[in-house]
């Protein structure tokens, strides 16, 4: 495969995909999207990088190892169950607050969103980890 195009394109592509993914993730509660879809789009950016350059480069760009994203994501999901336990005495119950931000107006924040963020992070770790493993061991590049 001719890599040069990909090698040129992966950086802007990654930025675009990160933004798209954030968008999909954030609107997920109200329209199509959500943690899983967002995470898949996000990981696509890094998979492109891995295919274009190599997996090590992609790993470096991810700041921490993909495995740690998995751990952190799962931990966030577990943590999101705690407020419900404290406030309503039933774990995993949604607890919501409203924050007023200067530009965006009222934003509803709640544990389900934290949970979804956990999903997002975890799935991101999962998909990148999987792809990197396959790419590395089967010597795509």
């Amino acid at each position: 495969m001719d890599k040069t195009v990909l090698q040129l394109a992966y950086k802007p592509l990654r930025v675009i995909l990160i933004i798209v993914s954030m968008y999909y993730f954030l609107r997920g509660h109200n329209s199509p999207g959500g943690g899983f879809i967002g995470a898949l789009i996000l990981s696509a950016g890094f998979i492109f990088q891995a295919m274009a350059v190599n997996t090590n480069s992609a790993r470096r760009s991810m700041l921490i190892e993909p495995e740690w994203y998995i751990h952190i994501g799962l931990l966030m999901s577990i943590v999101s169950s705690i407020p419900g336990w404290i406030y309503v005495n039933t774990p995993m119950t949604g607890v919501w607050t409203t924050i007023n931000l200067p530009l965006a107006g009222d934003i509803k924040l709640g544990t389900p969103l934290l949970f979804d963020l956990g999903v997002y992070v975890c799935v991101f770790g999962v998909v990148t980890s999987m792809s990197f493993q396959f790419l590395k061991h089967i010597k795509w590049n």
């Binding site: 997920g28 109200n30 329209s31 998995i70 995993m92 389900p112 969103l113 999903v119 770790g125």
Partner: peptide, 26 residues
């Protein structure tokens, strides 16, 4: 607090399913 019912089911009504799902993935 969400309009996307499917997403609300996933992260709230049946969040335990989703927890299991991401565990499977992990």
């Amino acid at each position: 607090k969400g309009q996307n019912i499917v997403n609300v089911i996933l992260v709230d009504f049946r969040s335990l399913d989703t927890l299991g799902e991401i565990t499977v993935l992990a």
